[in-house]
């Protein structure tokens, strides 16, 4: 590749990758608006924290412990890989890969939610949503993300059910798999931002 070629008329007027479906764009736009919502949510966290000015978390609430969230991260982040693997499989018409990959993701996602529930059980003894704004933020952010994981898992489970029925997906029909995968990757990535905001940033 030469600079000349890359800055020529044709390269500069390259069309977007061909053949994206309306469903793909619809899901991407939905994810964009959801991502904006999370950005506002995390922005609100920092706004309240720095407007408060005092020690954070306030009211003697201890800084969040890292062990459980890091385990949750280790469970959730890799859960995108089976989805990718499954999607590649069905593009080649390999239905077993679709089923196996989705099942693996389902297990990882449910594990994540179970870990979150155990974390809540411990946290709720220390503070609740009504303790102060920190508590409100903590439960809103993590709870809202947990809700997204639940929705994502519903999608994955729905795909799994459809693929187990047969006659749903194949090398020529896998749009729904792709769209659900986009959503799951998004839910995954948002967790990284939440890990940083809620768990790591109070220690900075």
């Amino acid at each position: 590749m030469s600079v000349r070629a890359a800055t020529g008329t044709e390269a500069l007027t390259t069309e977007l990758p061909v053949g994206r479906s309306t469903g793909w764009w619809g899901m991407v736009m939905f994810v964009v608006t959801e991502a904006t919502l999370f950005a506002c949510l995390l922005g609100s966290y920092f706004y309240l924290r720095f407007q408060y000015g005092g020690p954070w978390p306030p009211d003697g609430i201890s800084k969040p412990k890292l062990l459980v969230p890091l385990v949750m991260t280790a469970v959730l982040l890799p859960s995108s890989l089976p989805v990718v693997w499954a999607e590649r499989g069905i593009r080649q018409g390999q239905r077993w890969r679709l089923r196996a990959g989705l099942a693996a993701t389902l297990v990882l996602g449910v594990t994540f939610l179970a870990l979150q529930a155990s974390e809540y059980a411990e946290k709720l003894r220390e503070f609740t949503m009504t303790t102060d704004a920190y508590g409100s933020l903590f439960y809103l952010i993590t709870g809202f993300h947990g809700l997204h994981v639940l929705v994502g898992l519903t999608m994955i489970g729905w795909l799994l059910a459809a693929s187990l029925r047969g006659g749903s997906f194949g090398a020529h029909r896998h749009e729904r798999v792709r769209n659900a995968a986009i959503y799951w990757h998004f839910v995954d990535l948002v967790w990284a931002a939440i890990l940083f905001t809620v768990y790591l940033s109070p220690r900075l």
């Binding site: 590749m1 030469s2 070629a5 890359a6 800055t7 020529g8 390269a11 500069l12 390259t14 977007l16």
Partner: peptide, 12 residues
């Protein structure tokens, strides 16, 4: 232009 040149051009 080849695919990489197109990608670079598109990003530019």
């Amino acid at each position: 232009p080849g695919p990489r040149a197109r990608l670079t051009g598109g990003l530019l």
